[in-house]
Computed example of a mutant assay.
Amino acid sequence: MGSSILPPEGEHLATGWEPELPAADSLVRQAVLAHASWAVDAAQRAGRPWHDGDSWAGGIVADRGSITNWVVAKQPVDPNAILTEVAALFPPSVPYLYVSPWPTGDLRPHGLGLAGHPPLMLRLPGTATTPPATSLEIRRVTTAAGLEDAERVLVEGYPLPELQPYSPGSLYSASFLDGPSTVFVGYDGDVPLATATAHTAAGVTVVENVAVMPAARGRGAGASVTWAATTHHPDQPAVLIASDDGQPVYERLAYLRVERWTVWVRG
């Protein structure tokens, strides 16, 4: 070759995870930053403890429930350093998920258990997909009563045994609807049976808090509320971290598996 492919000495080579890089540097970066936003927004709006720095973001939404509180790594740094900082925010009795887009090594010495390596899934805008059919009426939540319906379905339908019996305000504060999250509920008449949330940040839509009551399973309820959340911002890609049960549903909605992330839990 006629010239060197090496950069000039001292020139910084971007890794894709520098804090100053735009979110749209890559779709995976957008997904990471959007999930980090999801991790702090509800806690911040409820006036509860939260942190959002260069290496991680997290917040305390509830004192119980293993999926209620999230900590998301934002850079491929030593997770032991992150968890040392997390310990200063989270009291020992408060559970949380530790979500890492990168392999972590063994985090059991921090009191965490490995939950798995679920795939990050992505659906690009404009993808031709037939909307799922259901007998439920899918409504966007705009009132405190609707938010309580969504909470109840999440607690009882996901389910979240630690938050049962259901008490209003367990997960969502009234200010939640004033932020970047939009909640949907599927009703059979006036009975709430399914829910999903669309959270917009970093130019993508995070689909989260998908739950269906047993009475609505097999009726297209989960796919329909997921579809409502997925397409709420039609010009944005949608991303989600998929459970084993949810992956076939998401694939039918034209979601693609991008890569596996790593999730630990402190229960």
Rank of each mutant, 00 (worst) to 15 (best):
D54I: 11
E9G: 10
V28N: 04
L253D: 02
P234S: 13
Q236V: 10
P131K: 13
P159M: 05
E11A: 14
L120T: 01
Y250P: 01
A254G: 11
A133V: 14
G218F: 12
A254P: 05
H232I: 02
V72Q: 09
W227H: 12
L107W: 06
G220D: 04
H233M: 05
L154M: 08
L114S: 09
P79K: 12
D25K: 07
W261C: 05
V71G: 10
V141D: 02
Y166I: 00
I82F: 09
P8S: 13
P49I: 05
A238F: 00
G53H: 15
N80E: 13
S173R: 10
L122Q: 00
A144I: 09
T84V: 07
P22C: 15
R152A: 00
A81P: 01
G203M: 03
A242N: 08
N209D: 13
R123K: 12
I67M: 10
T127Q: 12
D52K: 11
A145Q: 14
V77P: 02
A196V: 05
P192E: 07
Q164V: 00
M121V: 08
L154C: 00
D235T: 11
T182W: 04
L112H: 07
A43L: 05
L33K: 07
R260H: 13
G157Q: 02
G189C: 04
E208S: 15
T182R: 15
V212A: 12
G179E: 05
P131F: 14
A216V: 08
D78S: 15
H35K: 13
A254K: 10
A23W: 06
V94P: 03
R123M: 05
Y96Q: 01
S55C: 12
G2R: 12
V86S: 08
P132D: 07
R260T: 11
A216I: 01
R123V: 04
P76S: 15
G157P: 00
A215Q: 14
A221L: 10
R48P: 03
